[in-house]
Amino acid sequence: MIIAEGKPLVEVAGLIQEARKVLVVGCGGCVTVCLAGGEKETGILAAALRLLRQKEGNPLETVEVTLTRQCDPEYVDMLEKYVTDDVDAIVSLACGVGVQFLAERYNKWVVPALNTKFAGGTVEHGVWEERCGLCGECILYKTGGICPIIRCSKSILNGPCGGSQNGKCEVNPETPCAWQLIYDRMQALGKLDLLMEIQPPKDWSKSRDGGPRKVVREDVRLA
C-alpha cells in the first residue's frame, strides 16, 4: 500500500489560514490502513484544526467526509454535495494521488494534510517499511525476493558496496543492508551462483525517469 504520514498540524493550519469553512476529506484506502488519513485521523485533524483556530480567535468550520477511495472518480464524485459555495478549501488526507484527483474534479483550493512516503507494508502494528521502488520493471526474481532498487541506499544492482558492515547499511546503523539480505537468502536457497551474473544497467525509462506513466487495459475499458 501507499504509506503516508500526517504533516505537522501547524503546517496544515497554515495552508488554510484564509479559509473559514473547509472540507476535511479522509480516504478509506491505503491511508486508512496505515492510520494516516482514515475516518479516525480525519476526525482528529478536524478537531485539532478547529481548536487551533478557536484559540487564534478565528474560528473554523469543518465538514468531515471520508470517501471510500480518493483515487477513483466514482468515489470522488460523491463529495460533490459537500462542495458548496461557502467551502473555501478542501483538506485531503489521501496520498498525493487523492489530493490531485480532488483538485482535478473540484474548482476549490485543495491542500494535502499528509506527506506521501512510500510503497510499503506493515511490519508490526504502528511500523511500516518501504518495500517497492515502483521502478516499472520488477527484478525481484533476480534477487531472492528482496528489492535492491529501493532497499539499497544506492540502488546497487551488483552489490553489496563497501559500506555494508555487520549486516547494516553505512547510511544508517538501523537499516539492514539489502545486499546482505539478498546474499543470505540466495545462499539459503542454494542460488549464490546467480549473484555472479553481472546485472546490466537498468532501463529507467520504465520508471519515473520516462516521464509520467500510464497503464491502459483495452480489455476492461468501457468506452
Binding site: 553489496p160 563497501g162 555494508s164 558492515q165 555472479m196 553481472i198
Partner: peptide, 19 residues
C-alpha cells in the same frame, strides 16, 4: 576498481572482486 575486504559479507567480497 575498489575492493573492501573489511566489509560484509566477507565471503562474497572476493566474489564481488571477481565480478
Amino acid at each position: 576498481a575498489a575492493a573492501n575486504p573489511f566489509a560484509d559479507p566477507f565471503e562474497f567480497r572476493v566474489l564481488r572482486l571477481e565480478k
